[in-house]
Design a protein around this nucleic acid. Structure first.
Length: 604
RNA sequence: GGGGGAGUAGCUCAGCUGGUUAGAGCGCCGGCCUGUCACGCCGGAGGCCGCGGGUUCAAGUCCCGUCUCUCCCGCCA
C-alpha cells in the first residue's frame, strides 16, 4: 500500500464498497456525536466523509483531531446507511470506516477559517495566503487561471504563433510607467530595469524575421494599485505579428478571446463579432474609452438644444458660452421612480464633484409629450420635445443632463450612465460584451507643458499617408492633433483588456513622429536605440496587442478584485505580508552593489 | 500626493441622543450526545474598543492628531 494514499478524496464511489483504502488530507470539518464521529477529509480533489465509532481502534485519536490537521486515514469503504446519503457530494453515497489515523501535520488554531464562504480582511488573507488558497473559491479560481492560460497557449499555437522568452533584466525605458530597477554589481552606478512589457523585444523579434510571436509575459510597473491593477507585476498575453494590417490583428485575436470566453464563460453568451467603435464616438456615446455595452443607455449631445434662444436655463448657457457642452443621459422607465431616486443620483453627482444632475421626466399631457422637472420652466415645450427626440425617449422616461467642458462632461456623463443603468437594473449581467475601440488620436495637447505629446505610445503608426505625414508642418497644431493612429483597445464589459497597435517600423516616419512631439533624433536613439537601429536594416510592417491575463481571469471568474485570481498578490502598498517583501538587505549586499542609502528622515 | 470608507474577542459583526460589569455568531477549551454533513445541547476562557491627546462628573460612543487596511482620483507609453 502506498505510504500516503491509495485514492484521492474525490475517488471513492459505491463500486468501491468493501475496499481497504488509505486517504490523506486535511480535516475539513469534524462532527463529534459522542458515539459516532464524522471527519470530512479534504484534499485538492474533493471531500470524503470518514466515520469513527467506539469500536474502532482509532476512536481515541479521532477525538483529538481539529480543523485543518493533515492526517492519513486507513479504513474500509462502505455504502452509507439508507437515508444518510448526501447527494450534494460526488462521494456522498459512500464513507470510509476508519481503523487507523496517523497525524501527518497538526495545525494551530486558525487565524482564518478554511471552511465557509465568509469574507475576511485582506491583510489577514494575504498574511495567511496558504490558508486562504485552501478555500474552495480561491482554490478554484487559481485552477481556472491555469486552464485559461493553457487554452490561450493552445489557441495561439494553433494559429501558428511561436512562444518566446524575453529578458527579465533589461534596460530602463524612459517612456511610460516608473521602472523597477535592479542595481548592477559589475557596473557600479548602473541599473537594469524589469520590463514594463516586452514591447521592444517583441518588435525586435519581428525585425529578426520570426513572423508570429506570443508570450505569457510578466510585466513590471512601479505604479499604484487598483482593484483591477496589481501593484508591481502582472501577466499579459503578449502578441506581435509581421506583414499585417489592423484587420489582420483583429482577425487573429478576436477568435482567441471569444474562444476562451466561450470555453470558460459557463455558457454566458459572447459577442459574436466585436463591433469597432471609434474613440471619439465612444467618448460621446458612452463617456468612456472602455464602454460597458451591457448597459443599453446611449448618451447624446444636446448642446444645440440648450443653446436655443427660447431656452432660459442660464446655468448651462453660461458654461456653453465658455466652450462647454451639454450631454444627455436617457433613463428608460425612470418616470416611475420616486423623487428619492432623482435626489440620490443628484447627491451622487455632487460626490463626483459636479454641481448636480439636471433632469427632466417626460409624461403625456393632453396627448402631448411634456417634461416635469425643477428645470422644466426654463425649457419651453419645443425644446423639451427636441431633446426627447434626440435622446430617443418618450413618456415614462427621464433624461439627465450634465454640462461642463467636453472632457469632464463626457467623463461625468459616462459615470452617470453606468450609475443610472445599475440603479434601474438595465444592464445584463450574464453576458460578455466585447468591442474594439479604434482610431485613437496619435497626439494630444499637454496642458501642463504647453506642448504636443504622444497620446498613447510612440511606437504606433500614424493613420495618415506616409508622404503627407513626413511633410507635416510642426506648427500645424490643428492637423497634428487631429491625426489618428493605428492604435486600438479591446474592451469587455467595461474592462479594458488590452491595447495594441500597428507599429511604426519606418525610421523616417518614426523620426518625424518624435519630432512632432518635440523630440530630436538624438532623444530617439537614446530612448529606443536598439529598436531604432533595427528599423534601419529591413524591418517588416508589424503590429500586435497584449491582453491582460489577470483581467481575463477576473471576468471569467466573476471577480471584482484581482487578488482573487492571483496566487500570491501584494497589498495596495505593494507589500507581500506573507513573504515580507520588500525587505531591508544586509550592509554587505549594499556594499557589493556600491549603494549607500539616503533615507528620508523618519516622521517625528 | 489627494479624497471616501473601515479599525470593538482568534474571525465576522452589534453596541442608539455619552451613563452600571462592552454583547452575539463562528472558532477555541471542558462536559453530554451512535447518523451528521453549517450536527445539536450545557458550561467556560478569551477585550489597551488601532494608538496618542483633548472635552466631560463620566468616552467604544464627541473633538483633534496619528497609524493601519481598503476603494477611488492622480499615475498606469
Amino acid at each position: 500500500m502506498h505510504r500516503y494514499r491509495t485514492h484521492t478524496c474525490n475517488d471513492l464511489r459505491t463500486a468501491d464498497a468493501g475496499a481497504e483504502v488509505r486517504l490523506s488530507g486535511w480535516c475539513h470539518r469534524i462532527r463529534d456525536h459522542g458515539g459516532v464521529l464524522f471527519i470530512d477529509l479534504r484534499d485538492h480533489y474533493g471531500i470524503t466523509q470518514c466515520v469513527v465509532d467506539p469500536d474502532s481502534p482509532a476512536f481515541a485519536c479521532a477525538e483529538k483531531l481539529r480543523s485543518e490537521w493533515v492526517v492519513k486515514i486507513d479504513g474500509t469503504v462502505r455504502k452509507r446507511p439508507a437515508g444518510t446519503e448526501n447527494p450534494e457530494m460526488p462521494t456522498g453515497l459512500v464513507e470510509v470506516y476508519v481503523r487507523d489515523i496517523e497525524v501527518l501535520g497538526p495545525a494551530a488554531e486558525l487565524p482564518l477559517p478554511v471552511f465557509g464562504e465568509q469574507q475576511y480582511p485582506e491583510d489577514m488573507r494575504l498574511k495567511y495566503r496558504f490558508l486562504d488558497l485552501r478555500r474552495e473559491k480561491l482554490h478554484a479560481n487559481i485552477l481556472l487561471r491555469g486552464r485559461i492560460v493553457d487554452s490561450l497557449r493552445a489557441r495561439m499555437k494553433a494559429q501558428g504563433f511561436c512562444e518566446f522568452q524575453t529578458p527579465i533584466l533589461t534596460a530602463s525605458s524612459p517612456e511610460g510607467a516608473r521602472d523597477f530597477l535592479v542595481p548592477s554589481r559589475l557596473h557600479p552606478g548602473k541599473f537594469y530595469a524589469l520590463p514594463q512589457a516586452p514591447q521592444q523585444f517583441k518588435q525586435l523579434i519581428m525585425a529578426a524575421g520570426f513572423d508570429r510571436y506570443f508570450q505569457i509575459a510578466p510585466c513590471f510597473r512601479d505604479e499604484d494599485a487598483r482593484a483591477d491593477r496589481s501593484p508591481g507585476e502582472f501577466y499579459q498575453l503578449d502578441i506581435e505579428m509581421s506583414f499585417v494590417t489592423q484587420e489582420d490583428v483583429f482577425a487573429a485575436v478576436e477568435p482567441v478571446l471569444r474562444g476562451v470566453f466561450e470555453e470558460f464563460g459557463g455558457g454566458r453568451p459572447v459577442t459574436p463579432s466585436f463591433p469597432r467603435i471609434p474613440y471619439a464616438e465612444a467618448l460621446l456615446k458612452y463617456g468612456s474609452d472602455k464602454p460597458d455595452l451591457r448597459n443599453p443607455l446611449v448618451i447624446v449631445d444636446v448642446t444645440e438644444e440648450f443653446s436655443r434662444d427660447d431656452v432660459t436655463f442660464n446655468a448651462f448657457k453660461n458654461i456653453i458660452k465658455t466652450g462647454g457642452v451639454v450631454r444627455a443621459i436617457p433613463a428608460s422607465g425612470a418616470g416611475a421612480q420616486p423623487r428619492s431616486f432623482f435626489d440620490k443620483l443628484n447627491n451622487w453627482a455632487k460626490g463626483e464633484g459636479a454641481p448636480g444632475l439636471g433632469y427632466v421626466v417626460f409624461e403625456t399631457t393632453d396627448g402631448k409629450l411634456a417634461g416635469k422637472s425643477p428645470i422644466a420652466k426654463f425649457l419651453p415645450a419645443a425644446a423639451q420635445q427636441a431633446i426627447a427626440a434626440k435622446a430617443n425617449v418618450g413618456a415614462g422616461d427621464a433624461v439627465f443632463f450634465v454640462c461642463d467642458q467636453e472632457g469632464k462632461a463626457a467623463r461625468l456623463a459616462g459615470a452617470a450612465r453606468l450609475k443610472i443603468g445599475n440603479e434601474l437594473g438595465l444592464s445584463r449581467s450574464d453576458v460578455f460584451q466585447f468591442c474594439w475601440i479604434v482610431d485613437f488620436p496619435m497626439y494630444e495637447w499637454n496642458e501642463e507643458e504647453g506642448k504636443i505629446d504622444f497620446s498613447h505610445n510612440p511606437f504606433s503608426m500614424p493613420n495618415y499617408g506616409h508622404d503627407a505625414f513626413l511633410a507635416l508642418d510642426p506648427a500645424d497644431k490643428a492637423t497634428i492633433l487631429s491625426l489618428k493612429a493605428f492604435q486600438y483597445d479591446v474592451v469587455c464589459n467595461g474592462v479594458e483588456l488590452s491595447s495594441g497597435a500597428i507599429r511604426n517600423h519606418r525610421p523616417d516616419i518614426m523620426k518625424k513622429a518624435f519630432a512632432l512631439a518635440g523630440y530630436s533624433e538624438d532623444d530617439l536613439e537614446k530612448r529606443f536605440g536598439g529598436l531604432y537601429r533595427a528599423f534601419h536594416y529591413g524591418a517588416p510592417p508589424h503590429g500586435g496587442i497584449a491582453p491582460g491575463i489577470d483581467r481575463i481571469v477576473m471576468l471569467l471568474a466573476g471577480e471584482e478584485n484581482l487578488r482573487e485570481v492571483v496566487l500570491f498578490p501584494m497589498n495596495q502598498r505593494a507589500e507581500d505580508p506573507l513573504m515580507g517583501a520588500p525587505s531591508p538587505v544586509t550592509p554587505k549586499q549594499l556594499r557589493e552593489l556600491h549603494i549607500r542609502l539616503n533615507l528620508p528622515e523618519p516622521k517625528a
